[in-house]
């Protein structure tokens, strides 16, 4: 499928990420729970965003008794590929590590490097 999907605003993507993560269709309560810890969402706001996502064709709403259940109509990978990167993002890659404390420098990975590091760690084992 190579139809262009609209770039989702941050808030809508936030909801989609939760729906994609969940294996089964979810209701709004579940989404609200998952959103805890990030910015606080009011139920009304969430319902608006959910409705907009349904309208855009990203979500499918299924009625189950008194509950509305939501499931993704567009897969995460499909959207990810479609979103792509802006020119500026392409230009910068994720090469900026100057104001981040990382477990390791993520720019430095290469298959040969990994083999070399593996060998180094194993050599230490033999010594002791």
């Amino acid at each position: 499928m190579d139809r262009r999907l609209k770039r989702l605003p941050d808030a809508e993507l936030e909801i989609m990420l939760i729906v994609w993560k969940a294996a089964a269709p979810v209701n709004s309560t579940y989404i609200l729970e998952q959103l805890q810890g990030q910015r606080t969402w009011a139920l009304a706001t969430l319902m608006t965003v959910l409705a907009r996502l349904v309208e855009k064709g990203f979500l499918v709403c299924e009625k189950q008794g008194r509950n509305n259940l939501y499931r993704a109509a567009i897969g995460e990978d499909e959207y990810k590929q479609s979103e792509g990167r802006t020119i500026l993002e392409k230009l910068y890659g994720n090469s900026i590590q100057s104001l981040v404390t990382a477990l390791y420098d993520g720019r430095a990975i290469d298959k040969d490097d990994l083999v070399e590091l593996r060998r180094l760690l194993d050599s230490f084992e033999r010594e002791d």
Partner: peptide, 19 residues
């Protein structure tokens, strides 16, 4: 990873030193 972004050399040396 989908795309390699290795414009940076000497990374493996740093990791060796860390280990």
């Amino acid at each position: 990873q989908t795309a390699l972004s290795t414009f940076f050399y000497g990374g493996v040396r740093t990791m060796e030193e860390r280990f």
